[in-house]
Design a protein around this nucleic acid. Structure first.
Lengths: 242, 242, 242, 242
DNA sequence: TATGAATGAGCTTTCATTCAT
DNA sequence: CATGAATGAAAGCTCATTCAT
């Protein structure tokens, strides 16, 4: 995974292999290809260095495109960043729609959701990084993107159904807020991966080692299912918080 | 909490009110005060804009100090950033040492740990932000700071003791890895706060509303204790992961 | 007048209303219309921002024409500017030819000339602006335009006739240079309008207020006629200059 | 005069002669000298190319100063331009205060005022150019400069006194508005000089030839005094305008 | 005739850092 | 201890113009 961060998320087939033939032709007039090359390069750059740290020069170089083209296609740096963010969000929303939790028994449904989330994070490190970047920017771009905000996630609705079914059949505890639960499921994977550098240093473990990753996946499922599982002893749980 | 992000974490009493005395002396010859003002300003700036986005000029301006002083006291931008990071880590390590988990029964010990972590994150948003920044830098500064790495957290040791006691007396499930558990405890609070901007936008909730914060704190405790609590049904949990 | 500055001088009838017919044809194959749209847009842009400040992109956008068309019809920016300048000069020369000063008694002839000049400036603010622009460029384009230089103004000849008739009949003073006089007539209106922004600010008057404009027109006529009018006292005027 | 345009208005003594000694020292730490060099260079550049056409690179080069210094001392291009404009206005206001029109008999007072204005324009071509530039910018910078707006010209008050005295003693016509008259006095010189390039081309005369300049000065005085001079024939002047 | 992709050079501005006092 | 002048490099962005279709 480590190095995947550097790569673009959806490389769209073969890339940059017709270019260097012959006598350095200016550019093959393929606007769509250029657009995509820029978006891929920008994703990699924003992931690698954050918003402020990303350089449009570098993006152009990565995309093997004249710098002027970034502005031609995407306007300014901000707009390019927004385009990157939007594509990334579309990616996860699309994947989420493939999940058919309502077809499964509650326990399996939750298990599948947890593993889906964990796997998606593992396979799309750029998404994690962009989310962090966006939060360092206080969410200002996401907020202004009606495109993303209209892209509703089907998860909460599906989860509500699953949680109700589970509670009805006595498998799950009652009164679980699907939003809180979803945030928790995401947290357990996101934090582990996103903060892997500091965690690795502090705990002196290689968090990306395949065995460690598997271990973490198992742990997350256990935490979530352990929490949800209903039994008498838990009904009386009382907690005082601030 | 929201606004705390902007401020320095430990403002060290009254600030910048001795300045305008008499006939505009160059500076109130108080090196320690200057040092601290710089560190506070730098913290605020790095928190607000990340490493690359932070401006040395702005830090000097915030600290009401000549730019040259930053270099005098801290060397270059990297070194200043490292100093900020180190102070922040020292802060949490110091707080952790106050916790006396070994004096408490297992269940209460875990509850206290969870609430401590949650409260610390709430009260030190700059720590969350710096951690994110450092991870975007792939942990390169943390790794080079022997100072931080020598600052061992007492938590893992304490937790191992608590978990063993809990397992022995039958309250907790067996075989829980204290590191995994600690990461999970941190995750559940960290992600919620750190990603509050995107989460707020997507879920259209104000995550920093006091009621919401209390709710989240309660939820985290329930998840962790629910997971740890031992009962027959859980012994058979089998999970397959990647 | 204020807003006329923004608009093109001779809009050539109805504008941009044939465009949206049918199924978005590329362009309504009307070369002459396109030519004119470009020239109008260029005039507006050069008037609004001067030569260096004018943007070829913006001209194309204003004209609702592909940028490539500018080059197709007019060559480079310089050539387009020259075309704008030439049209503007043709405009005033054409108007000047309508004046029939030789048909009028001297006093009335001068009065008509003065008012014509003032009115023309009022109605053609783009001409004033282009003249200023051209002078900031040290007249380099005007100098290279044989077209404009061949466009002789009939005014000087007409004025010479009028001044001679006036002097002969004793109405006007003798020995007035028609060029000096023409420059003065133009000055009194041109400066007032062209420098209206700074003058308005300094004198805290709205120079474009209709009452103010009428007042200025009256003043200019009085100055010119007052100067020309012959009487004994003036014969002895002696002035020493550098 | 022609080339004076290129030079800075107040060169502040000896300039740039200590620089090139020895081994190319970085810069003599003389902030005031640097400030002034930048202002002089900026004046020359704005005069030569207008606001949009002026290049900060070129200004730095002219001033033999690192480009970064412009921003250090003056902020952005806009601010630098404003500083140039302000200095130029201060120049003419200072000169105006030297005029002691109230000490002179009316006719001589006006004559002195006219010649002062003409001479000032001749000696400060940069002032004319800056005024034109500012008016092409629609006076936006002048308007925002409280510094200039507070710099009231003493001329209008002095002129009112002179005109009243002249009318009282029967030398001048009655009811002359000092503002209109001042604008006219300025017009007759300003337009001639400012539009000399186009005028020279159209009339095929060298307007800057010393003989021509003297002639123009004489003409302006005659126009103004001719207009002001009172006699019976003028009392009946009736003019109809738009 | 018309389009819009593509370009290199240049723009204004900001960066972290060092030097002289 | 403290100041602010000075710097080279690089940032993001726009320019007029040309090429391929």
């Amino acid at each position: 995974m480590e190095d995947v961060v550097q790569k673009a998320p959806a490389p769209s087939g073969d890339e940059a292999d017709l270019d260097d033939c012959a006598v350095r032709q200016p550019r093959p007039r393929d606007p769509e290809r250029t657009r995509l090359a820029i978006l891929d390069a920008a994703t990699a750059e924003f992931v690698a260095h954050g918003f402020a740290g990303a350089s449009v020069n570098e993006i152009a170089a990565r995309a093997k495109v004249n710098k002027r083209m970034l502005y031609h296609y995407y306007g300014k740096k901000d707009d390019l960043y927004l385009a990157v963010l939007e594509r990334s969000y579309k990616g996860i929303r699309t994947a989420e729609r493939e999940l058919r939790l309502t077809d499964l028994p509650p326990r399996e449904a939750i298990e599948r959701l947890v593993m889906f989330t964990w796997d998606y994070f593992l396979e799309h490190p750029e998404f994690l990084s962009l989310l962090n970047t966006e939060n360092m920017l206080r969410g200002r771009y996401l907020r202004q993107s009606t495109q993303i905000r209209d892209l509703h996630s089907p998860l909460i609705t599906m989860m509500r159904d699953v949680l109700e079914r589970g509670a009805a059949e006595g498998t799950f505890r009652k009164g679980v807020d699907p939003v809180q639960l979803y945030v928790s499921i995401a947290s357990l994977g996101f934090f582990y991966l996103s903060n892997r550098y500091t965690l690795s240093t502090i705990f002196e473990r290689d968090l990306l080692d395949p065995a460690q990753l598997a271990e973490r996946g198992r742990h997350i499922v256990e935490v979530i299912l352990g929490y949800l599982s209903c039994d008498v002893s838990k009904a009386s749980t009382k907690v005082s918080t601030t």
